[in-house]
Every structure is written in structure tokens, then in C-alpha cells.
């Protein structure tokens, strides 16, 4: 198989794994890891298209996405610390204050 095809398929696969981690796991930390995994899959897609079309815009976009991921994980983890302080756990089935 050609390299570009392999990388496009890997990107789709990793995106689905990230989505699965987000839907399946109850641990908020691992749900955040799923989001990181999806961002990585999108980055891979950007770089592969950038290589196939001989352009640099995809790689520039990856630069911005990585910065965004760093900001997102910093805020996400500090929200997580607050959840842990208030509920004593970061599992989603313990944080049920809003359940009617």
C-alpha cells in the first residue's frame, strides 16, 4: 500500500479510537486523553495532505493545533483538580450533582 493511503487510514482509525475513549471510559483523565488522541489524528491528516499537495499550510495549521491542545489540556486538568477536590473522585458516575 502507498504511504499516503496508510497515513490517511491511520488518521481515521486514531480519530475513532479517541472518540471511543471519550464515549467508553468513565475516568475523566482518560476522556481528556481521548480528546488529545483525536487532535493528533487531525494533525496527522493535515501533514499527510500537506505532503500530497506540496503545500505548507497544513503544517502551519498543525503548529496552531498543537498550541491549542496545550492550552486545552492545561485548562482541562485544572478543572479536573477542582472536580477531584469537590467530589473526591474524577469518575463521571460520581459527579452527579446536576442529575435530576
Amino acid at each position: 500500500m502507498e504511504t499516503g493511503n496508510v497515513l490517511h487510514l491511520l488518521s481515521a482509525y486514531l480519530f475513532c479510537l479517541g472518540l471511543l475513549a471519550l464515549l467508553l471510559r468513565r475516568n475523566t483523565l482518560i476522556m481528556l486523553m481521548g480528546i488529545e488522541l483525536m487532535l493528533n489524528a487531525v494533525n496527522l491528516s493535515f501533514v499527510t495532505f500537506s505532503r500530497e499537495l506540496n503545500q505548507l499550510n497544513g503544517q502551519l495549521q498543525v503548529f496552531f493545533v498543537i498550541t491549542l491542545a496545550a492550552a486545552e489540556s492545561a485548562i482541562g486538568l485544572s478543572i479536573l483538580v477542582n472536580i477531584y477536590r469537590n467530589f473526591g473522585s474524577i469518575k463521571t458516575d460520581r459527579t452527579t450533582s446536576l442529575r435530576g
Partner: peptide, 8 residues
Amino acid sequence: AFLGLFVV
């Protein structure tokens, strides 16, 4: 692809 399964 293999390591991704461990993450999930």
C-alpha cells in the same frame, strides 16, 4: 495503531 488500543 497497536498503542492506540492500549490508550482506550
